[in-house]
Amino acid sequence: MALVAEALAAALIVLGAFFLFVGSFGLAKLPDMMRRLHAPTKATTLGIGFTLIASMVWFGGVAGDPSFHELMITLFLFLTAPVTAQMISKAHILRSAQTQAELPPTGGDAAWATLPRDRTGEDKAG
């Protein structure tokens, strides 16, 4: 039983390290900001998830000292990764005229929320 748990934990750790590597590799390799955003948000989050599950399996199955608080970090990272990604892409859209030119129309009356003419915080910035 302990051997199975140890093998499972080892496999999860290696798998997690692989996805973390892919995330960072994508960040280094992909050519522009919006494409770079894809690799770290997805691959890195799944990689850290695998690593934390491996930690749970190992402490529960091998060390005989079960703990579940790793689950909280996993949950926290899965909830925050999309928020981080959206904040970064909004800031990027605001700062890059080239990206703004690429944006498709919204299909409605209002513009995209980030674009400068909708910037509500502008007057308070000074």
Binding site: I13, L20, S24, L37, G47, I48, A54, F59, T84, I88
Partner: peptide, 23 residues
């Protein structure tokens, strides 16, 4: 923003290093 994203990813890698050191 590339730098912000790089640091954000680095933080997650650091968490993984910490957890693996814990194991």
């Amino acid at each position: 923003l590339d730098r912000v994203l790089a640091v954000d990813t680095m933080v997650i890698n650091a968490i993984a290093l910490i957890v693996i050191a814990g194991i």
